[in-house]
Design a binder for these strands. Structure first.
Lengths: 191, 191
DNA sequence: GACACAAGCGGACTATCGGTCCGCATCGTA
DNA sequence: TACGATGCGGACCGATAGTCCGCTTGTGTC
């Protein structure tokens, strides 16, 4: 069983595509406005390369998001409290929600593209399932929250990309204000 | 100023299109899978007729939804309590949320199509703005809810079509169970 | 270094879909 | 019946996701 190493040019192209797509999505207001041709051209590769590597448009966006989310996932799974394990339930729940919101604020366009992606339910994406699971676990330890599963869904729904986008661009809030509001709301829910 | 009456054939076609689209969206699991050609064919009209009447795909879906939502809007604006004006704030808020959720449950595929529609933010749609405004007004009268504007957004986010869809099809809840959960959560938030 | 073969590349090509356009049919009216 | 306005329909267009296959390039072997 020899491990097939990735060819050097393939690795180079993968990086080029991810970097180009990242820049493109970060710059654009409307995710749907960026075509796969755009990404291929910006990365200086052929379209075939894109699709062989990432399967389809959704796959590309997911790969992009997954790379960005990874540090957060690590921090939640094995980082120091209050985000990592070991913190008091209430503090950890608040820290998780704030971290998720902060991530979405920092990557607005990308998360918008991700939650928009191709009609696939955002509720089945790996990162969402992970966040929901840990939030559930934590909420179950709080006596004031009767229905942890549902409460976790709703609290995470408060961080949805298009809601955040609306609060920032239409209602004119700053990122900090949105974070304060979520913190206040969540604190009330957690009792 | 003579009022230009709608021509008889135009009215007939409009009804045919709405009925056909309604049936098509109700039947299909994935809104994106239904093309304008499908609707035109099912209604027995040409594509041009569709677009002249409704502008674009989003316009058609909105027209469809608007017709369905109208009774709910009426009931909220001028119906009897607890949904209509005059009820105690807490009861009215709970009634509104339940009514919205019930609507989305009864029109799952249509609301899914609506919130998906063409990259347009669901937060700027007329019905959402209306629901949010009344919910805000009502919440402001409750001392236990500090940030009415944001709380209204989050509570309405708890009724989002794709979340409801996920709870029903993936987590296997019944509509009644979802309603109970929302009611429990909202009751806790309202104090 | 030369060779052979697998892995990867790229961009022309296809299918589909939203949306437009315009010659023709139909309606309402005098 | 005749006529102008309104509406119809489907051929057509441009864009875009995704496929395909002949060619190139990297890599392990002698």
């Amino acid at each position: 069983m020899t491990v097939r190493r990735e060819r050097a040019d393939a690795a180079r192209n993968r990086e080029a595509v991810l970097a180009a797509a990242d820049a493109l999505f970060a710059r654009s207001e409307r995710p749907r406005g960026i075509s796969m041709d755009d990404v291929a051209a910006a990365a200086g590769v052929g379209k075939g390369t894109l699709f062989r590597r990432f399967g389809d448009r959704t796959g590309l966006i997911r790969a992009l998001a997954e790379a960005r989310i990874e540090p957060l996932r690590q921090a939640v799974e094995a980082g120091p409290p209050p985000l990592g394990p070991g913190a008091a339930p209430r503090e950890r729940a608040l820290a998780l929600l704030d971290a998720v919101l902060e991530f979405k604020l920092a990557n607005r366009h990308l998360t918008l593209a991700l939650e928009d992606a191709g009609g696939a339910s955002p509720y089945q994406a790996g990162h969402y399932v992970g966040w929901h699971a840990t939030l559930c676990d934590v909420l179950r330890e709080l006596p004031d929250v009767p229905d942890a599963d549902y409460a976790a869904h709703v609290l995470l729904a408060a961080t949805r990309a298009d809601l955040v986008e609306h609060l920032v661009t239409v209602e004119g809030l700053t990122g900090e204000e949105v974070r304060r509001r979520l913190a206040g709301f969540a604190a009330a829910v957690l009792g």
